[in-house]
């Protein structure tokens, strides 16, 4: 018992001090008004203010679209990756690993060089006399920007799944004379479906929580859940930490439910490959 205590003490203290206590306090604060009394006013404010509803709407629509696009591309990418030679795989995995950790300020800056108002893309389009090209500083632009870290993340999640599919299945199916489409729809798709759901959930959650890239690109000009939380804490609008807590609580509750549901789907299917 004493050994156990010693082993778990540092870990326990860390979890307690920077996870359990802050998250609990955040939960409680979300139910307090500015004077400290109990009230639902924060939540009321979130749901009845057009501005805050817009933040939720923006976050969800950007995340949904970007994670769906990234999901499809990363399945195709991961499939392609399994077809390559081992050394090429290793190099590409390094590349994808890096581009996913390139997210944030560096990515924002790169995108400004490419797609900013004085960027390469603008130069190309104006030479070609194309107008109304992509504006990176917009909801659409953000959706586009997120794909730069969502796609590599998706590929890195999918690659092990597709790589571990049993090669003998393909051979058996060939021997049985099944067509490729038949095999993919009847065998492969049902097997990886739980993984697709799980990875989609993770990509969606990751997009929902993205702050650094948006903030670096647009400051608080794009209204999304993370940027609203950021400005409520930093006081760039009006500092209102309880309201920020309500937003953060809402975020955590929704994400926990979604991730939990995603896990449930995976476990019910019970044929998880990882």
């Amino acid at each position: 018992m004493a050994t156990r205590l010693k082993i778990f003490l540092p870990f326990g203290l860390l979890i307690l001090s920077v996870l359990i206590v802050p998250v609990s306090v955040m939960l409680i604060s979300s139910l307090q008004n500015m004077d400290g009394g109990f009230s639902f006013s924060n939540y009321h404010q979130i749901f009845f203010s057009r501005y805050y509803r817009g933040a939720i709407y923006n976050s969800i629509s950007i995340s949904l679209i970007t994670s769906l696009i990234s999901l499809v591309i990363s399945i195709i990418g991961a499939w392609a990756l399994t077809k390559l030679s081992l050394s090429t795989k290793n190099i590409l995995i390094t590349v994808f690993n890096m581009s996913s950790s390139f997210a944030g300020v560096p990515l924002a800056f790169s995108l400004i060089i490419l797609f900013g108002n004085a960027g390469v893309f603008k130069a190309i389009t104006s030479t070609l006399h194309v107008h109304d090209a992509l504006n990176i500083y917009s909801v659409t632009g953000m959706t586009f920007a997120y794909t730069f870290f969502e796609i590599p993340l998706g590929i890195m999640f999918f690659f092990p799944v597709l790589d571990s599919l049993n090669r003998e299945w393909f051979e058996v199916s060939d021997v049985l004379g099944a067509s490729k489409m038949f095999f993919i729809s009847k065998v492969i798709f049902p097997i990886i479906l739980p993984n697709i759901v799980e990875i989609f959930v993770l990509l969606f959650a990751n997009a929902m929580g993205t702050y650094e890239t948006v903030y670096a690109l647009m400051g608080n000009n794009l209204v999304s859940i993370p940027t609203v939380i950021g400005s409520l804490i930093n006081g760039e609008l009006v500092a209102n930490v309880p309201l920020a807590c309500a937003f953060a609580t809402l975020f955590t509750v929704i994400m926990t439910i979604i991730v939990w549901l995603g896990n449930r789907v995976t476990n019910i299917k019970g044929r998880r490959i990882s």
Binding site: P22, V23, M208, G209, T252, T256
Partner: peptide
Amino acid sequence: FTIPGIVL
């Protein structure tokens, strides 16, 4: 994913 930096 459930508690990203900005929430924490």
